[in-house]
């Protein structure tokens, strides 16, 4: 099988079925000239450079004008999710009694609850962004960094930051490449309590690094 550009690219992107992956790897390893391996490296480097070139939005805080779009108080129909459950035969009397309850307790309670929910939503969004950045740093470090060279990530939006450092590379019995790494993280949502974890991840045929083992390390 001659390796077309499309096949090499699909290989780099982790889109080839396992049998073809083996075939490509064998051919790259056996190629007399280094051109084939160089092409694979260049294609990989191209993707990394692209990710880095457009990474600014992943580091910079999301502008208010965008987050505000999601701030709007739930419109009247926003409450319909509650009413939608109540479409059975008891809907009308139940709705009436709930309405009475709401009026009785006053709108303030509902409003306070909504505010709390909004805060939780923000916090969740921050956590999700932190986790995304950590995951991105893990795949970047495992994919492109030599052991001992840490990748640093930080989320200015939340203030969270951390490092990912590969420490060892080995081949598993399954033939997969695996790496042991240490990740540290100071999550703002966890009040910046430092955590340090030692983990092992293996590279799946699709190019994703799958964490196999993760152990929290405590300072002692």
């Amino acid at each position: 099988m001659r390796l077309s550009d499309e096949i090499l690219i699909a290989y780099v992107d982790g889109e080839l079925p396992p049998d073809q992956v083996r075939d490509v790897e064998a051919q790259v390893a056996a190629a007399a000239d280094a051109a084939l391996a160089a092409t694979v490296d260049a294609l990989r480097a191209g993707s990394s450079v692209l990710r880095a070139a457009f990474n600014e939005p992943m580091r910079a805080p999301v502008p208010d004008r965008l987050t505000k779009l999601f701030d709007a108080a739930p419109a009247p129909e926003g409450h319909s999710s509650t009413w939608r459950w109540l479409s059975g035969p008891f809907a009308a009397p139940l709705a009436a009694s709930m309405m009475a309850l709401a009026v009785g307790l006053g709108g303030a309670f509902v409003f306070a609850e909504w505010q709390v929910e909004r805060k939780i939503a923000r916090l969740e969004a921050v956590r999700a962004a932190d986790r995304q950045m950590l995951a991105a740093a893990v795949s970047l470090a495992l994919e492109t960094h030599v052991s001992g060279k840490p990748a640093i990530w930080n989320n200015p939006d939340s203030g969270s930051y951390g490092t990912v450092e590969p420490v060892r590379t080995f081949r598993a019995a399954s033939g997969q490449w695996c790496r042991e790494y240490i990740q540290t993280a100071d999550f703002a949502a966890e009040s910046f309590q430092s955590e340090r974890r030692r983990a092992i991840a293996c590279r799946e045929p699709d190019g994703q690094w799958q964490t196999r083992l993760e152990v929290a390390e405590t300072d002692s």
Partner: peptide, 30 residues
Amino acid sequence: RREMLALLPRLRRFAYGLTGSTDEGDDLVQ
């Protein structure tokens, strides 16, 4: 709502790539 908020950084990155500037990208994201 939460999921969309969490998607904003990635959407901004994609829009940055399409438009070539973060400002225009943010207009697109908006």
